[in-house]
């Protein structure tokens, strides 16, 4: 057994150097050369200012911005240094409360008879989801248009520009990138 422990220690030591040192280093060197933007967090820069990560959602609550998914992170929503989901079971009272609060918030600024898309009243798994469904974006178009005094068709056109289909027409779900859409809304008004 002593002999085995000695061998085990040596094997682990050598494999730690190989798998815990050399392997991640080699991957890092390759991707920092080939995909430097992605490897560093897909940061979005506008005029040398970093305005976000293309993959990480941000919190929005003003009526003039499109709102994303609910986020369960603390102490603020969309805290990208501590990801978490809500972990509410289907009958947890706060699941319903959170959905009702969001519905109320949506209702304050608009009176809509149509049912609200489910992704607009539920929290994402990561709390950092950068997307909403096209249905959830369409639902918010009248509010944005009213708040920004923009024609609805123009807002709809911007939504369409920031809608991604399924990858290769097949994988995943169609989705709207909330941060990019909101950035383009701001840009639209400053250039007008």
């Amino acid at each position: 057994m002593f002999q085995q422990l000695r061998t085990a220690t040596m094997v682990l030591l050598v494999l730690t150097v190989l798998l815990g040192g050399i392997y991640p280093l080699v991957v890092t060197v390759i991707v920092q050369v080939v995909f430097p933007n992605q490897a560093n967090g897909s940061l979005v820069r506008i005029a040398s200012r970093t305005v976000g990560s293309d993959l990480i959602g941000q919190p929005f609550s003003k009526p003039g911005y499109f709102w994303g998914r609910l986020s369960a992170t603390g102490p603020v929503p969309y805290n990208a240094a501590a990801s978490t989901g809500s972990n509410f079971g289907p009958m947890h009272p706060d699941l319903k409360n959170a959905a009702e609060a969001r519905i109320a918030a949506l209702g304050v600024t608009e009176s809509r008879p149509v049912p609200i898309p489910v992704d607009l009243v539920t929290a994402s798994g990561s709390g950092l989801d950068p997307h909403i469904s096209p249905a959830a974006a369409e639902y918010q178009v009248p509010r944005i248009a009213a708040a920004r005094k923009m024609p609805e068709d123009l807002v709809r056109k911007l939504v369409q520009e920031h809608t991604e289909g399924r990858q290769f027409g097949m994988l995943g779900e169609p989705r709207v990138h909330v941060l990019r859409l909101n950035l383009s809304l701001d840009q639209q008004q400053t250039t007008k």
Partner: peptide, 30 residues
């Protein structure tokens, strides 16, 4: 989740949303 249907939430899948039980799920995966 029927709890959400009762308060006016649309969970029917279509080309514009994946619908269903989206609590804890990411939009891109559906």
């Amino acid at each position: 989740n029927p709890v959400l249907t009762h308060i006016g939430v649309d969970r029917v899948p279509s080309e514009f949303q994946s619908g269903g039980n989206m609590e804890g799920k990411e939009t891109r995966f559906g």
